[in-house]
Computed example of a mutant assay.
Amino acid sequence: MSTGLASQISDAVKAAMRAHDSTRLGTLRLLQAAIKQKAVDERVEPDDAAILAIIEKQVKQRRESIAAFESAGRTDSAAQERAELDILKEFLPQGASPEEIAAALDAAVAQAASQGLQGGAAMGAVMGQLKKALAGRADMAAVSAQVRARLNG
């Protein structure tokens, strides 16, 4: 792990060890394991974009777990997942503002319309463009809901 983001994560693991912060250390070790797994599976060293995708996936998993734990009334587990989510968010780029998201959405919908795309094809094209534009900077589930609303009405 020699990329910038990987070295930041490695430094954060060392700092968590020194501080005896078990929650932070455990979360970061899980993240490092996911990065290593990707490196082994693909036989290439993940770059920052690949590591960001891994972090986004883990953030999404934490959000889903929080929702599941809260609906089951397990507030202690939800709190643990929230703490892990906060740690993972530290490594994501600065979030996009609602105005940036709206502008990117407008541009992507306009481009799909100019190509004559409708329905599922338009949804796929718009989401593909937005994933590139907003990678790691927006909750793509929320963006997807906005795209669906815009395309359907």
Rank of each mutant, 00 (worst) to 15 (best):
L5P: 04
Q94H: 12
P46T: 06
T27Q: 10
V147I: 10
R63K: 10
R18S: 07
S22D: 06
G120K: 14
A142I: 05
V143N: 03
A15I: 07
Q58W: 03
E70T: 08
P46N: 08
R18C: 01
R43V: 06
A125E: 07
Q118E: 15
A68T: 08
A6T: 00
A103K: 12
A138F: 06
K36W: 11
A12Q: 07
S144I: 01
A72E: 14
A103E: 14
R62F: 02
A83V: 07
G128T: 03
A15P: 01
D47Y: 08
G95L: 05
A34P: 01
A108S: 11
A12L: 00
A135V: 14
Q129S: 13
E42G: 15
S71K: 14
A72S: 15
E81G: 03
L28W: 02
R137H: 09
S71P: 12
A67L: 05
A16F: 09
A39N: 02
L117P: 02
D48K: 04
Q146Y: 12
G116R: 04
A83M: 11
Q37D: 11
I54L: 08
K36R: 11
S97K: 07
S2V: 09
K36I: 13
R18G: 04
L28E: 10
A12T: 00
Q8V: 02
Q37N: 12
A12G: 00
Q129I: 05
G153K: 10
E81R: 08
V143L: 04
V143I: 12
A104G: 15
Q58F: 02
M140Y: 04
E100D: 10
A53L: 12
P98R: 10
R29M: 10
T27L: 02
E100K: 14
E100I: 00
M1Q: 15
D47H: 09
A50E: 07
I66N: 13
A79W: 01
L117M: 15
I35S: 01
L92A: 00
I35G: 00
V44M: 06
Q146K: 12
A141K: 13
M17C: 06
S7P: 02
S2Q: 15
L130P: 03
I66K: 03
G95F: 06
A67W: 02
V126L: 11
V126Y: 09
L25G: 05
S7M: 11
K14S: 10
A68N: 13
I55Q: 03
K89M: 14
A121D: 14
G153W: 02
G124W: 03
A67Y: 01
D76S: 09
Q8C: 06
A108T: 04
A16I: 05
L5A: 06
A112W: 12
A113E: 15
T27Y: 02
D21T: 03
A112E: 13
R150W: 03
Q129E: 13
V109G: 12
G73I: 12
L25E: 05
L52H: 00
A133I: 10
A96M: 01
G119C: 10
I54H: 06
D21P: 00
D47V: 04
A141E: 14
Q129A: 09
A16C: 01
Q115C: 09
V109W: 14
Q61N: 04
A104E: 08
E56F: 05
A104V: 06
D21C: 01
S97C: 06
A103Q: 15
P46A: 01
Q32Y: 06
K131F: 09
M17R: 14
P93G: 06
M123D: 13
S7G: 02
D86S: 11
Q61K: 10
